[in-house]
């Protein structure tokens, strides 16, 4: 059985936290430029130009793109033939987050107790970790720092099975409209459909990891993604909520089978700084 040292995992996570916060994905940067060309309004154009410039500065100066460097959401795909040695897996992940956020001068935004004490943990731990056991002997780590301007605008709805596609569309458009300028549009809309409450939420979050230009494998859902993107962009919320054609950069849907009585839907919104970096160890 292949082994991996916990320390190696920590180092990889630290690096990914910094990389994700400094270097915006090329897919997003390119989409800012395409959106700039599509927009008619001066304000929208100017904002998109500023976003491009901001991403350039962040990359060049190696500083965070956004001051909200997020809560570290980490997806693990752990091969069943890989064994972690010389340490505990989750401890290693959190040590990596602590090191990355400290050494990278990233903002520490996590509080220990969500309701009463709300004391900053000073190193952005703990991370939110999702683990999937998969075949093979490798470990894939994806770090997606999630800002809360957009996280706060996310919603859950248990639709009726008979609400169907129209019910889903109505809900998604309502969520985006209610969010308005708050989640830093242009946004990425992540939609999880099916499963149970927590499964739908996880699917929605996971859909945000998809690079722009990659659609759902199923043609039906790919079409729905594209229809919804068009409809969202007709809302005229626009960059920063000041009007325009670019309210969203993408609408991503992930689905899972569900119960005869249910149609769970979670809409998880990401801001225009749609960050995620991955590595395979």
């Amino acid at each position: 059985m292949r082994t991996i040292k916990a320390e190696e995992i920590s180092r990889a996570v630290a690096k990914l936290c910094i990389d994700a916060n400094y270097n915006l994905g090329e897919d997003i940067v390119n989409e800012y430029k395409l959106a700039y060309q599509r927009e008619n309004s001066d304000v929208a154009k100017e904002i998109l130009q500023q976003l491009s410039k901001n991403a350039e500065i962040a990359k060049e100066d190696q500083v965070p793109i956004c001051q909200d460097t997020g809560m570290a959401v980490i997806f693990l795909e752990l091969g069943q033939d890989l064994r972690v040695v010389e340490g505990d897996l989750y401890q290693a992940i959190n040590q990596g987050v602590s090191a990355g956020y400290t050494e990278g001068y990233l903002r520490k935004s996590v509080v220990n107790d969500p309701l009463i004490q709300r004391k900053n943990t000073e190193d952005n731990t703990p991370a939110v970790i999702h683990t999937e056991i998969v075949p093979g002997d490798q470990l894939k780590i994806t770090v997606a720092p999630k800002g809360f301007g957009s996280e706060n605008m996310s919603q859950l709805k248990m639709l009726r099975p008979t609400d169907g596609v129209e019910g889903l569309k109505t809900f998604v458009l309502k969520v985006v409209k209610e969010a308005g300028p708050n989640p830093c549009p242009p946004i990425v809309v992540g939609i999880g459909i099916g499963g149970t409450v927590e499964k739908a939420a996880l699917l929605a979050k996971k859909s945000l990891l998809r690079p722009l230009g990659v659609y759902n494998d199923d043609e039906k859902f790919k079409n729905l993604e594209q229809e919804l993107l068009e409809e969202v962009n007709r809302l005229d919320i626009g960059p920063q909520g000041l009007g325009g054609l670019t309210t969203a950069l993408a609408v991503n849907i992930e689905t899972y089978p569900t119960h005869i009585a249910g149609l769970p839907v979670v809409v998880n919104i990401n801001c225009h700084v749609a960050r995620h970096k991955e590595v395979v160890l």
Partner: peptide, 25 residues
């Protein structure tokens, strides 16, 4: 502009904590 944080920081010439230091950021 939300998210244009690297750009905005270039306009800040001085910064000093004056109260509630325990709140960190």
């Amino acid at each position: 502009i939300g998210g244009a944080a690297a750009l905005i920081s270039k306009c800040i010439k001085e910064a000093e904590v004056i109260a509630y230091d325990d709140l960190g950021t």
